[in-house]
């Protein structure tokens, strides 16, 4: 027997090696992906978290994450490096989220920032940061406004329970919630 891997006499070995031109070498520097599966697995949670932070609900976050992957899969080759893939995903997410708001409410309620949100994809903030982010929004508010948002958003109370807890009517609680959100948004502006 010889050592020739091309030996055509071997049964079941007809498909020796790739066809010419089908093989593409790329730099093996640990910063590339081996497959689409890997691109997906490596980025799906990061991307979903980023999009959730822009839309605040699961159904839309799932739809938009799907949309970003679909839009990105065509142009992206798996030979792209990890930073290239992430940058492309963020740019795609920017377009997808902008389109979503235009169609849904006619206003861009939130936007994807190419620099900050690329940072988010590369190093997603730990979940333990969440209370800090909430506090940044809530801390500047006067007590009763902060309380209504805590009850509704952090403790998941209904508007009725919230009104009861705060000793006001439901209509009042609604108004207070709306004002509190506006104040939080104003306080969060740089």
């Amino acid at each position: 027997m010889n050592d020739d891997p091309e030996d055509p006499s071997q049964p079941g070995d007809e498909s020796e090696g790739p066809a010419p031109g089908e093989r593409r070498l790329r730099a093996v520097n640990g910063d590339t992906y081996a497959s689409w599966d890997e691109i997906y697995t490596d980025n799906v949670v990061r991307l979903y978290r980023l999009i959730y932070s822009k839309v605040g609900n699961r159904p839309d976050a799932e739809d938009l994450t799907t949309e970003v992957f679909l839009a990105a899969m065509g142009p992206l080759r798996t030979t792209a490096t990890r930073p290239e893939v992430r940058a492309y995903l963020v740019a795609t997410a920017r377009t997808v989220v902008a389109g979503f708001w235009r169609r849904r409410l006619g206003r861009e309620v939130t936007t994807v920032d190419l620099v900050q949100d690329l940072q988010f994809l590369n190093e997603p903030p730990p979940e333990s940061d969440a209370p800090v982010r909430a506090q940044r929004l809530l801390a500047p508010l006067p007590d009763r406004y902060r309380r209504v948002l805590e009850l509704r958003f952090l403790e998941a109370r209904s508007i009725k329970e919230t009104a009861h807890e705060m000793g006001v009517s439901v209509a009042n609680a609604k108004i207070r919630q709306h004002r509190a959100l506006r104040m939080a948004a104003a306080g969060a502006q740089p």
Partner: peptide, 27 residues
């Protein structure tokens, strides 16, 4: 503005922004 703040608050609960494994599969 109010909606933007609501979204940010909602995403600021620990674990709220983590997709379930079912969601990852579904996507």
């Amino acid at each position: 503005d109010a909606l933007r703040a609501a979204i940010e608050l909602r995403a600021s609960r620990v674990g709220a922004d983590l997709p379930s494994s079912e969601a990852v599969e579904a996507i």
